[in-house]
Amino acid sequence: MATDAALRRLLRLHRTEIAVAVDSAFPLLHALADHDVVPEDKFQETLHLKEKEGCPQAFHALLSWLLTQDSTAILDFWRVLFKDYNLERYGRLQPILDSFPKDVDLSQPRKGRKPPAVPKALVPPPRLPTKRKASEEARAAAPAALTPRGTASPGSQLKAKPPKKPESSAEQQRLPLGNGIQTMSASVQRAVAMSSGDVPGARGAVEGILIQQVFESGGSKKCIQVGGEFYTPSKFEDSGSGKNKARSSSGPKPLVRAKGAQGAAPGGGEARLGQQGSVPAPLALPSDPQLHQKNEDECAVCRDGGELICCDGCPRAFHLACLSPPLREIPSGTWRCSSCLQATVQEVQPRAEEPRPQEPPVETPLPPGLRSAGEEVRGPPGEPLAGMDTTLVYKHLPAPPSAAPLPGLDSSALHPLLCVGPEGQQNLAPGARCGVCGDGTDVLRCTHCAAAFHWRCHFPAGTSRPGTGLRCRSCSGDVTPAPVEGVLAPSPARLAPGPAKDDTASHEPALH
């Protein structure tokens, strides 16, 4: 009773807030009518008042009428009001819900409408889902798969039609296919003929059939049928067999079959498995989609049935006599038709004709302190090069084509190399640097090759510096006499390219 009084008091307290929050009759008014909170006449009256005075006034009048009803109607109103779709449509209802007392429970059932309790003993237990329907569909599909699609060729003596089998029958139906081979029951999904010589313990000319048996419980189990008994694959494991010639990621696949039913060829011909030897223990289905393919039931050349050999690369099948050149017997292992072999060759040939990528240039590290003349020119003028003790990398590039010797140069053309002071002394051009340390401070000019250098860098042994005729380390061993002091540049003949010694390969005349 306390809860009923509290709900009535809360409705009177929030009546105006609810009326202002509800700006549309749908969905709240319609939901109240659906849950029998508002009768039909009051529903029509509220809609009429909404058209006349507006939605807030109409709902305020409806809530005032609701306060005169019993506690069950008020409880049902609060339940409908706080439904998710009403809270989404009328956003101003959320503060009312947040301020609702926590001790007021809106989930209690309506009085007088409590459903009768059902004894637990009368409640049926839930049924577990079964796979009976899938099993029945598999039974119905198996006879259809064994139905012949056409008439065999005159040369083929193997013609068999499976008798119709009602689904209610649980007995196995067997077809006489000759040579002791028996087909599987209607619940078998796949059958492959297997030679009895590969099964340990088999006697006589009995041949087993590799099947997948579907049981009534819905589970499946792969086994071997020899005669009327089934054997699990673990009985046929043979770890010492060295003649297993397995197909790549293979499961067994029928390579020879008669049109209309699988079996042995007439005249004692023995149908073979995809792999010879003992049956392997793992009978998992292969991951290669080509091995799941269903080959055609007629020859791809003459479009006739009979004894066919199936290609492992495509769905086509052929007569042995229709092949070019014809085959006398079934080859062992994987067999592919000429079209598949030709496609494989065409895929391999473009790969062989692809040009080989060019090898990157060989990189040879230079000892610290040495650099090529090109690196000396590329440096920024007026700045010493940083990191001189790091190992430089010199790339061996292809030799350029031989060019004509340089033409003779006048001494005026070499004027930018040297600057003559007032006393006739050779001065260095701006930006000249030593080729060893890279520093341009207090550098000297070689009178023979006009290269800038430090005496301490080229002659670290402490050799005394002569007063005139300074030469760098590369030119100090040259027998050519030094030019007379005061000459602007060496003779043009000295600039012609010539053979250089091994220790002077990195010091070429550089223009500054």
Rank of each mutant, 00 (worst) to 15 (best):
P109K: 02
K131Q: 01
A202P: 08
L66S: 01
R272F: 11
K222P: 08
A152M: 15
G155C: 05
I224K: 07
R174S: 07
V38M: 04
A191F: 00
P126G: 14
D70W: 00
G228A: 04
P109G: 03
K133V: 01
F230N: 04
A193N: 12
Q262V: 06
P254Y: 13
V37C: 00
I96Y: 02
L93M: 01
Y90V: 02
S241P: 14
G268E: 12
R8K: 04
G240S: 11
T46S: 04
D23E: 10
L62A: 01
I211M: 04
H14V: 00
A121F: 13
S71Y: 15
R139K: 14
L128A: 13
C223S: 04
P109T: 15
G150T: 06
G54T: 00
F215R: 03
R139V: 09
L255C: 04
A117E: 10
A58N: 00
L210P: 06
F82R: 03
S24C: 06
D36P: 02
D98Q: 15
F215I: 06
R12T: 00
A246Y: 14
Q189W: 00
A264E: 08
Q157E: 13
P163S: 14
D4G: 02
L106E: 02
R257C: 01
R272I: 11
A73Q: 00
E237K: 09
L29Y: 01
F26W: 13
R79A: 02
G208W: 03
L177A: 08
Q212F: 04
L29G: 01
L128I: 13
V226W: 13
A121D: 08
G219E: 06
R203V: 15
A271Y: 07
T46E: 14
S185T: 15
E17N: 00
E45W: 12
K114E: 15
S107R: 13
I211R: 02
S135G: 00
K221N: 10
R110P: 05
S153C: 13
L158T: 03
P27T: 02
P27V: 01
G268K: 08
P148Q: 12
S64I: 01
L10D: 04
G197T: 04
P154M: 01
S64G: 04
F100M: 00
D198K: 06
L97M: 07
R113C: 14
K159F: 14
S249C: 14
Q213C: 03
A25D: 03
A25S: 03
S217Y: 06
W65Q: 00
P39H: 03
L81I: 02
R203W: 03
F215G: 04
K165L: 03
S196Y: 07
L49A: 03
K131R: 00
K253P: 03
G178F: 11
A6N: 01
S156C: 14
D36G: 07
A6V: 07
P109I: 06
P154A: 06
I209S: 03
P154D: 02
A117N: 07
K235L: 08
S153L: 12
P27A: 05
I74F: 01
L32P: 00
P124W: 15
E136I: 07
T183G: 06
R89Q: 04
L87G: 04
P126W: 02
A142S: 09
L13M: 13
E171F: 15
A121N: 11
Q212V: 00
L75R: 05
Q157I: 08
A33S: 02
E45R: 01
L28W: 00
A58H: 00
D70Q: 04
P119Y: 15
C55G: 01
Q44G: 02
T183K: 09
R132D: 03
E88Q: 15
A5N: 05
K159P: 04
D36K: 03
D105F: 04
V20W: 05
Q213E: 06
